[in-house]
Computed example of a mutant assay.
Amino acid sequence: MRSASSVRVGVVQASSVLMDLEQSVDKACRLIGEAAQSGAQLIVFPEAFLSGYPRALAFGTAVGIRRPEGRKDWGRYWRSAVSIPSSQMDRLSAAISQANAYVVMGIIERADHGSQGTLYGTTVYFGPGGEVLGKHRKLKPTASERLIWGEGDGSTLTVIDSPYGKIGGLICWENYMPLARAAMYEKGVSIYVTPTADARDTWQATLQHIACEGRCFVISSIQYMTKEMYPTDLACYQDLEDEPMELCRGGSAIIDPLGRYIEGPLYHEEGILYADLDLTQIEESRFDFDSTGHYARPDVFTLLVDEQPKKSVKF
């Protein structure tokens, strides 16, 4: 049960320092401090902020082909990923503790078992003391993401408690999975975060739909990226030759529980969106629609969610 009637949110739209973990952490810490100076109590970062969404890179692949230069770039990408725990996570936690804010951070996570060769697109939830409250691994990487990221399982369908209500959400096109959304609504999310890499107009319609369907605030954060932000010594840098200078225009936004824009979408620049959310709007919005209450039909529809962690070898 929430104990506050409002919360100030800061939504970061910025690029990571692609494939450079230390500099990406430095930038994240600066942005957390900047948002905290503006009074943000909840700070949301884009998908894959640590250490990058490698848009337009093919890693030397075609069907049936993996080229040596692609493996070289892949190794560089793997080394820029984040382990939990790690010294980089400790640095991030220290900055969050100083900011005294909840932080939702998109990372590329190294596997914590086996050979540690697999990477995951992950959202990490931090408390205001810098503690890790939970994480969510993307259930279904989209299109070519399937080449570089593994699939999460149901054990990380994370929702955290806060004085502002329950905070949780899904990553990018997971939000096109109706059953995954249903699971989030049933967990009682009132502030729904959607870190993404989708800068298209249709994504904005998705944000408004989720707000109306879940009767929740929707916070969407995306990176702003240009070709100038890429390291020029990538082995497969030629993948970018035919791409426009602006690789991702942004589109971060804050939506209220009736699907109306509070701030954004922000396009064509880095920046931080701020808004003071009136949390009493959540109950008011559910007067005529509650997807897990009076608009549910458990006599007709049921959903089974398996939240057990899955391992290929059991001892």
Results as ranks from 00 to 15, higher is better:
D26W: 01
V12H: 06
I255M: 09
T194P: 00
R67V: 06
A58R: 12
A197D: 10
A28F: 02
V159P: 00
E151G: 04
R66F: 07
E34K: 15
E47A: 13
L277I: 09
G114V: 01
G188L: 03
D26N: 15
A211I: 04
S83M: 06
A81V: 07
G129P: 03
I254H: 03
S5D: 13
V218Q: 02
F49H: 08
G250C: 11
G106H: 02
V63P: 10
A81G: 11
V103K: 03
Q308P: 00
S16G: 11
R297S: 15
C29F: 03
Y295T: 14
A99P: 08
S97E: 14
E47I: 02
D161Y: 01
I107R: 10
G250E: 05
A81M: 07
S38G: 12
G70T: 12
P85N: 12
I171V: 13
V313M: 05
K135D: 06
L139N: 04
T232M: 11
E241V: 10
V159G: 00
A81S: 15
Q204P: 00
F49S: 02
F126H: 13
F301D: 14
Q13I: 09
L157E: 04
V218F: 03
I43K: 03
D306S: 10
S16V: 01
D290N: 15
T123D: 07
S51F: 03
L240K: 10
A143F: 08
F289W: 15
R286N: 09
L92R: 01
D288C: 05
S83V: 00
L273S: 06
F126Y: 15
